[in-house]
Amino acid sequence: MVDQWTLPEIDLALCTRCGQCVAQCPTQAVEMQATGPVIVRPADCTYCTTCEAVCPVGAITCAFEIAWDKSAF
């Protein structure tokens, strides 16, 4: 079951704090904090995967379940 607030996963151990995810997020849902990037406005995150695509070290993961639409059955 997918949570309404499924969000990109950020691996702070890999993150270099380059700020690309913050700069490229189309909805400004991510902010750089002392510990690293944090999705501070989860409701604004559309799971567009831009942050995953621009992260130069693969620290952000946006994974998808693949399933049938249950209403189709």
């Binding site: 997918v2 949570d3 309404q4 607030w5 499924t6 969000l7 995150c45 559309t46 799971y47 946006c62 994974a63 998808f64 379940e65 693949i66 399933a67 049938w68 639409d69 189709a72």
Partner: peptide
């Protein structure tokens, strides 16, 4: 359909 973290298949 793309949901948060979910690719939902609609049309077999």
């Amino acid at each position: 359909k793309l949901d948060r973290g979910r690719i939902v298949l609609l049309d077999r």
